[in-house]
């Protein structure tokens, strides 16, 4: 049995969880005049899939010891939201915050997060939610793994760590099935939304979690980034138009006819929906 809290090379396990703060999706509008996103007044929350990622990391910490760092790129207002993660059991927050990071797409985001992880020192596992509710791209985890030259397992519902062999096994969900993959550490793990139940905050930790020294803010110069790779400047993609999608409310369309007629319509709808 390996000593608790140590990885086989003799140092403490280090799990990193990438988290972000997003506006509640149903409260975001497109301003019909300016055609820009109107987030004003929208309530924020931690991106829900990131909570599943944090829970997975905390379960490993419960079992193997070590520490859990929360890494996030965003404006200073993220801070109080992220501290929720400390009250759940994470150890420290690293917030990558700089005006220069603004407007980042997947390439610039993954680059900046990767620089942050490199600055953190030795890391065993990096956890991400499977996607963010604002962008829903799901491309950050593999991009991050690429910048870091880490292995990856995406869309994972369960992980097992083998401390002796320094490998991680994950159950990766695929349409109509799953696969068990094994990769060496360090690795990036993207966690399936809803695969676990994030623990509620331990209020005994709250005063500790809200102490100023729990958060380290790193700017572009702290990270020594190549500035052509961050923010708007480092983002190949541009948003050339925005529109409000049709309402998210249920359609409430009544279908009528004989069972056979209804069945035909439903079969058609199902085919479209499940293509």
């Amino acid at each position: 049995m390996w000593p608790t809290g140590m990885s086989p090379d003799g140092r403490e396990w280090h799990f990193v969880v990438c988290m972000k703060v997003v506006p509640k999706p149903e409260e975001v509008r497109v301003d019909p005049e300016t055609r820009r996103l109107d987030r004003a007044g929208a309530r924020s929350e931690i991106n829900p899939p990131d909570m599943n990622a944090l829970e997975m990391a905390l379960q490993l910490k419960d079992r193997f010891g070590g520490r859990v760092s929360i890494l996030s790129m965003g404006p200073p207002f993220f801070e109080p939201y992220l501290r929720v993660g400390l009250a759940m059991g994470a150890d420290h927050i690293y917030l990558l915050s700089d005006r220069k990071f603004g407007g980042a797409d997947t390439l610039a985001t993954t680059y900046t997060l990767a620089r942050g992880i490199q600055k953190l020192g030795p890391v065993d596992l990096v956890f991400c939610g499977e996607e963010s509710s604002d962008g829903a791209t799901g491309q950050v985890p593999p991009g991050l793994a690429e910048w870091l030259d880490f292995s990856q397992i995406t869309l994972v519902t369960r992980v097992e760590l083998d401390p002796m062999r320094r490998v991680v096994r994950g159950r990766r969900e695929r349409p109509g099935g799953y696969e068990i993959l094994e990769v060496p550490l360090p690795a990036v793990i993207s966690v399936k939304t809803g695969c676990n139940e994030p623990r509620f905050m331990d209020y005994r930790l709250k005063p500790w979690a809200f102490a100023p020294e729990r958060v380290t803010v790193w700017s572009a110069s702290d990270l020594e980034v190549d500035e052509t790779f961050v923010g708007t400047a480092g983002s190949p993609t541009q948003v050339s138009g925005l529109a409000q999608a049709p309402s998210r409310e249920r359609k409430r369309i009544r279908l009528e006819g004989t069972p056979e007629e209804i069945a035909r319509v439903l079969a058609e709808r199902l085919r479209e929906l499940l293509r």
Partner: peptide, 18 residues
């Protein structure tokens, strides 16, 4: 998604997802 996420970074190009 896994492939595209890795490739885009290796090629230093953009990726429009989903």
């Amino acid at each position: 998604r896994d492939l595209a996420g890795r490739l885009a970074v290796r090629l230093r190009t953009g990726l429009t997802a989903d």
